[in-house]
Deep mutational scan, measured.
Amino acid sequence: ALRETGVIEKLLTSYGFIQCSERQARLFFHCSQYNGNLQDLKVGDDVEFEVSSDRRTGKPIAVKLVKIK
């Protein structure tokens, strides 16, 4: 799958939103999709991810998040 990059724009307890670098979009992500310690993730962090689609709504979502050092 194609990896994309973006910036954490909003972060809540169990989910957040990424502002994409490659496209004009804000993508939802669930915190279970982040492969690191959530305490280390904060607004403004650069992340890399794959784009999938929500099974219920069909909308694009970010999965398999990795923080870019």
Rank of each mutant, 00 (worst) to 15 (best):
Y34F: 09
G6T: 00
K67V: 09
G16E: 00
T13N: 11
C20F: 11
K42M: 12
E4R: 15
L38Q: 12
E22V: 04
K69T: 05
E9V: 04
S53N: 06
C31Y: 09
T57M: 12
Q39S: 12
V47F: 01
D45R: 01
L65P: 02
V7C: 13
I18P: 00
Q39Y: 06
V63T: 15
K10S: 12
A1V: 13
L38D: 13
R26H: 13
L38R: 15
G6M: 01
R23Q: 10
Q39R: 10
V51A: 14
F29P: 00
I61K: 13
D46K: 14
S14V: 03
T5Y: 02
V66P: 00
Y15I: 12
I8C: 03
D45C: 07
K10Y: 05
G44L: 04
G16L: 01
V51G: 07
E48K: 11
Y34D: 09
S32Y: 10
Y15V: 09
S32V: 08
L27Q: 01
K10A: 11
A62H: 01
Q39N: 13
R55H: 08
I18K: 00
A62M: 01
E50Y: 08
E4N: 11
E50W: 02
V47D: 01
E48A: 13
L27H: 02
K64P: 00
L2Y: 08
R56N: 02
L27T: 02
E48Y: 03
L11V: 06
E9C: 12
S52K: 15
K67P: 05
F28G: 05
S21H: 03
S14R: 04
S53E: 14
R3P: 02
E9T: 15
L65G: 02
R56I: 13
S21C: 06
V63I: 10
V47A: 01
G6L: 00
S53D: 14
V47K: 01
L38V: 06
D46W: 08
G58F: 06
Q39K: 06
E22H: 02
T13P: 14
V47G: 00
L41W: 03
S14F: 04
G16N: 00
A25N: 03
F29C: 01
F28T: 06
L41G: 00
L11G: 01
S21Q: 09
R26W: 04
G6N: 00
Y34L: 10
G36Y: 09
F28M: 06
Q24T: 11
V7F: 11
F29W: 02
D46L: 11
L12H: 15
V63H: 10
F49A: 00
V47H: 00
A25P: 11
R23C: 07
G58H: 08
E50D: 08
R55Y: 05
K10I: 08
F29Q: 00
R56M: 10
G36Q: 08
S52G: 11
E22R: 08
K10D: 14
V7A: 12
S32M: 04
E22I: 04
A62K: 01
L2P: 02
D46R: 11
I68Q: 13
Q39V: 13
I68D: 03
V51L: 10
T5C: 08
L11H: 04
V7E: 11
Q19D: 15
R56W: 02
N35I: 01
G58Y: 11
N35G: 03
I68N: 06
E4I: 11
R26S: 15
T5K: 15
H30T: 12
K59P: 06
A25F: 08
A62N: 01
P60C: 11
L27K: 01
E9L: 13
S53V: 14
S53I: 14
K42G: 07
K42C: 08
N37V: 11
S53K: 08
T13G: 03
I8N: 01
L11W: 05
S21W: 06
E9P: 00
D46A: 12
A25S: 05
Y34E: 12
L27S: 01
L12K: 14
E9A: 10
S53G: 13
L27F: 08
R3Q: 02
L41D: 01
P60Y: 09
